Simulated scan of single mutants.
Amino acid sequence: MVFAEPPAFASVADERRDRKQRLAVALRAFAKHGFDMGVAGHITARDPEFSDRFWVNPFGMHFGQIRASDLILVDHDGVVVEGEGILNTAAFRIHSEIHAARPDVVAAAHAHSVYGTTWSALDRPLLPLTNEGCMFFEDHVLHTDHTGVTLEELKAKTIAQNLGPHRAAVLRNHGIVTVGRTVDEAAWWFIAFEHSAHVQLLAEAAGDPVPADPEDARAVRDTMGTPRAAWFSFQPLYQQIVHEQPDVLQ
């Protein structure tokens, strides 16, 4: 299966502008999907020049209003080095440890979505019931310590350690964290996980769901569950939001 590729850039400035715009669009996408529970939730994107810094949504600003220019840049000491706004300490703790532990990760996403948080109370992995569910087959972990409001460094380090090389972690009684090599990928994994949790909850309420054979699940994951495929899967939503809400790029 052939997918388009993420764009290449002539300069760091161009890449930073694009990354910030995609982060703002991803936050608007979360608002569009209803992943906006009060002040909870955050998506981060590593700066393309300074690998120990990441861009994040300011605390207390609605996902549906965020523009690229509203994002703040934070270093791994929790200091806001660019932009105006309040830093969500929980966001800093979780994301700084993930970015430090995973040099391959450009973006990480977490929100208190309905089905993801519901699933986190069950303490069990997703089944490969659909193509979307197959994408997480053998590639998500259960973080069984209740993290609550993650303000302590040790709790955040444990989340990053448990995530390991995987694309998603289920935080018990808290919700989902997804990561990716692009903002688009991390956002898409979150949307796909939420969809898969919803499907499994419906299927189990209706009867006894039959999961895909492990070999078939791996084949789907290795075809449709690649970083490049995830980036591509997010593009229709990216295009829709930019068309409907062009101010997001400002």
Rank of each mutant, 00 (worst) to 15 (best):
F190Y: 15
A13K: 14
L202I: 14
R167E: 02
V170Y: 03
E97A: 09
A108V: 06
E152Y: 07
G175P: 01
F232P: 01
Y238C: 00
C134D: 08
P103Q: 11
L163P: 13
V2N: 09
A45I: 07
D77G: 10
I66H: 04
R172K: 12
V12E: 15
H76M: 11
P128Q: 08
Y238L: 00
G164A: 12
T158D: 05
I176W: 11
G60Y: 08
A121N: 11
V74C: 10
Q161A: 11
D77E: 09
I241D: 09
F50K: 15
G180K: 09
A40W: 00
F137V: 02
V106N: 05
H198T: 04
V149I: 06
V80I: 15
K20R: 14
V105Q: 03
A205N: 07
Q65L: 08
R218T: 04
Q250Y: 04
F50A: 07
G180M: 11
D52S: 12
V81F: 01
V80A: 06
S69D: 06
P58W: 00
D18K: 09
T89M: 04
A68K: 01
D52A: 04
G225E: 06
A203N: 14
S11N: 13
H62S: 14
T158W: 01
G180I: 11
F92L: 05
H146R: 10
E244G: 05
D36A: 15
W55Q: 14
F137Y: 15
L129P: 02
W119R: 13
E5M: 04
P6R: 03
Q200W: 08
A219S: 08
A24H: 02
A29M: 08
A205Q: 10
F59D: 09
R46S: 02
V39E: 03
A108C: 05
L201H: 11
G133N: 05
R46V: 00
G38F: 06
D14I: 00
V25K: 03
K157W: 07
I159A: 09
G83L: 04
G175A: 15
A100G: 15
P214E: 01
L122G: 06
Q65D: 06
E132R: 05
H166W: 08
T130I: 03
V106L: 14
H33G: 04
